[in-house]
Computed example of a mutant assay.
Amino acid sequence: MVTPKHLCPWGLKAFDLLKRHGYEVEDHHLASEEENERYKKEQDVDETPQIFIEGRHIGGYDALREHLGLGPDPKEGQTYQPVIAVFSIALLMAVAECWAALHALAPVRIAELFVAFSMCVLGILKLRDLQSFATGFVQYDLLAQRYVPYACVYAFIETLAGVFMLGGVLTWLAAPAALVVSTIGAVSVFKAVYLEKRDLSCACVGGGSKVPLGFVSLTENLMMMTMSLWMLLK
C-alpha cells in the first residue's frame, strides 16, 4: 500500500529482497486503505503485500523469506542483538573517554568506564518505559515479586549508580546500592534459568525485548557486583 500518508514497510522490504536475489520486479501499488481492503477480500488474503513469482502465488513478506530460504524475519525470534549493541558501544565509549582523558589506553580505567557506561545505557532503556520493564522484571526477580514497585526502583538505582561511578561521587552510596540490587538480580536469574529452567525474556534492555533470560542477564548483574566491590575497595 502506497498513499500520501502511508508507505508499507513490508512492501519495501519484499521489493528489496527480490531485487537482491536477482529478480526483475513489477510493483503494483494500492493507493488507498479502501483499495487495500478490497484487494484482500478479492484475493482472500489477510495481508499485503502479496508476492507472485513467474505467475506463482508465494504469499506475503514472511512467505517470501521462507521461499528464498531465509527463514523468519530476525525480529520475530529471540536475539542478543540489543545487548551486543549496548556492550559494544559502551566499550567504544570507554576506550574513547580513556584516550581523551589520559592519552593512553589504561585497561583498568577502560573496564571501570565500560561497566559504568553499560549501566547508564541499560538504565536508559529501562526508564524509557518503566511499566513495560516492570512487567517483564517481576516475572523472575525475587524481590520485585514480593514488592512490585521495586522494579521501578531498580531501574533508577542502576542508572544513577552508573552516573555516580562515572563522576567518582557519592561512591559510598552508589556502590552499596548497586551491590545489593545486582546480588538480588544474580540470584533471581540463576534460580529462574538454571534451577527452575524457565524460558523467559530478559528485561535488561527494557520491556518487550526478545533477549533470552540467561547468561547475558547474569553477566549484567555480575558486572555490577564486581564494579561495586571495586569502587568500595578504591
Rank of each mutant, 00 (worst) to 15 (best):
H28T: 13
E112C: 04
C204N: 06
G71V: 02
A31L: 01
D73M: 03
T183G: 06
S228M: 13
P82D: 07
A177I: 07
M93W: 10
Y194W: 06
E97F: 07
Q43V: 09
F133W: 03
P82F: 00
G167R: 02
V205D: 02
I110T: 14
R65Q: 07
L166M: 07
F215C: 12
A63R: 09
T226F: 15
K5I: 02
V153D: 03
T79C: 06
F190N: 09
L18D: 08
D73K: 02
V83W: 08
H29E: 12
K41P: 11
V205P: 01
A106Q: 09
L195P: 08
M223D: 11
T79F: 01
N36G: 03
A63D: 12
V211P: 08
V181F: 02
D129V: 02
W172R: 00
R65K: 05
V189P: 09
Y154N: 10
H28Q: 11
T159P: 00
L179K: 11
V187N: 07
L222G: 14
A144I: 01
V153F: 01
E76P: 14
A116Q: 14
V187L: 03
F87W: 06
G71R: 05
V138D: 08
E112S: 11
G59K: 07
A151W: 01
E66F: 11
T219I: 11
A14F: 11
L179R: 11
A151H: 02
L91M: 15
A174W: 09
K19D: 14
G60D: 01
P74H: 04
I58A: 05
V148E: 12
A192H: 02
W230Y: 15
H21W: 05
V115Q: 14
E54N: 15
D16S: 14
G60K: 06
A175H: 06
D129P: 12
V163I: 08
R109P: 13
M119F: 15
H103L: 03
M165K: 03
L170A: 12
G59N: 04
K13E: 13
M165T: 10
G55I: 07
H6Q: 12
G71N: 07
L105V: 09
C152V: 03
I157T: 03
A134R: 13
M119A: 11
N36F: 00
V2T: 05
E66K: 13
R128E: 14
E26Q: 12
R146L: 08
V187A: 01
S188W: 04
S209H: 00
W99F: 14
A186L: 15
M119I: 07
E112Q: 13
Y194G: 10
T3A: 01
V169S: 12
R20M: 15
R128H: 13
V86N: 09
L143F: 06
L7K: 03
H29M: 07
L64P: 11
W99K: 10
G185W: 13
G71Y: 07
N221C: 09
E37L: 10
K5S: 07
V211C: 08
Q81P: 04
C120H: 07
L166E: 08
